[in-house]
Computed example of a mutant assay.
Amino acid sequence: MNDLLIHVRSLDPWTRAAEYGVGLAALLEASVTGAFVYPSPLQVAPTYSSPELLAAIFASARETAGLARAQAQPFLHWARERGAPQAAWHVAEGDAAEALAHIGTWHDLLLLDRGSDEPSTRGPAELARLILAVGLPCVVVPRHAIVPVSLDCIAIGWNGSQEAVRAIHAALPLLQRATRVVLLQGPLRRTYPEITWKPPLDIDLYLQRHAVHAEHRPLGNDAGEAGEALLEGAAHVGADLLVMGAYGRSRFSEWALGGATRHVLADAALPVLLRH
């Protein structure tokens, strides 16, 4: 992975995603881009607004844009100090998912903050919408600092699903750097009866072709507790990163992730790479 993108949601201090993303770029000797996205005044203005209110909203947006653009040199300097000399800074106006999807067209991985318990911060629906909309593998970073950034042990949530295969494919450059890869194997996803039979992937052979040797660690058979089992398994093997598919059991709307994914995003103490 040569180009990492960070959704920077706070300029002072830098967020956990920024800290982890810059550290990961240093580890991978990759370039890193910080992207700050603020809403368009037209997005936040009430439907019926007085001229005075509209003027204030536009003035506030201009001030936010100015403050964000002024962070370019501080971000580049901060990244260089932490071992990532190839850094860039972008400021965008509009919907975060659309802006990140656009910038992401020339990046390999997106770093996102899980957010905090404060009501003003990103909610689970917004985080899910970003993961499903940007078209990039995403690493969701927990609320506490990850120091040092390491890829010594990577755990994979494996159930044979297409989402899990996509996540593993996206994570191959990271898996190839790990000294230990552990497949946390749950019940294999059953194919819907109305769909033509599809041959299963031989995951061990696939990984071996990419110079990755994986251990197997079985999980329980209770699908309702899959998220908890994944986190327990990752903690047991001392994983630095968990790789899993973004969908779970639910696909009823673009913002609703499956139950296992929601549980992992809510409670994970380690970074999680997802790909839908």
Rank of each mutant, 00 (worst) to 15 (best):
M1D: 01
N2V: 13
H7N: 15
H7D: 11
H7I: 02
P13S: 07
A17M: 01
A17F: 00
Y20K: 02
Y20F: 14
V22K: 00
G23F: 01
G23L: 03
S31G: 15
T33Q: 15
G34N: 09
P39L: 02
S40T: 04
P41H: 07
L42R: 10
L42A: 13
Q43N: 03
V44Y: 10
A45T: 14
Y48K: 10
S49P: 03
S49Y: 05
F58Q: 15
A61G: 11
A65F: 11
G66A: 11
Q71N: 10
Q73N: 09
P74K: 00
H77C: 04
H77F: 03
H77T: 11
W78K: 00
W78L: 02
W78A: 01
A79D: 01
E81D: 10
G83Y: 07
P85Q: 07
G94K: 12
D95A: 12
A97Q: 05
L100E: 08
H102E: 14
G104M: 08
T105V: 12
H107R: 11
L110D: 08
L111T: 11
D113Q: 03
D113W: 03
D117N: 10
G123A: 08
L130Y: 04
L132Q: 12
A133K: 12
G135A: 04
G135M: 05
C138G: 10
V139I: 10
A145V: 13
I146G: 09
P148I: 10
P148L: 08
S150E: 09
D152I: 01
C153Q: 06
W158D: 03
S161N: 08
E163Y: 04
A164Q: 07
A167H: 08
I168Q: 01
I168T: 15
A171D: 04
L174A: 03
L175D: 06
L175N: 09
A178M: 02
V182T: 06
L184M: 02
Q185M: 12
L188Q: 12
Y192Q: 15
Y192P: 10
K198Y: 14
P199C: 02
P200Y: 10
P200R: 15
I203C: 00
I203D: 00
L205P: 07
Y206H: 13
L207S: 12
H210K: 01
A211T: 07
E215G: 07
H216L: 14
H216C: 15
R217K: 10
A223D: 13
L231K: 08
E232M: 09
H236R: 10
L242C: 01
V243G: 02
M244N: 06
G248D: 04
S250H: 12
W255Y: 06
W255V: 15
D267W: 12
A268D: 05
A268F: 04
A268L: 05
A269K: 09
P271M: 01
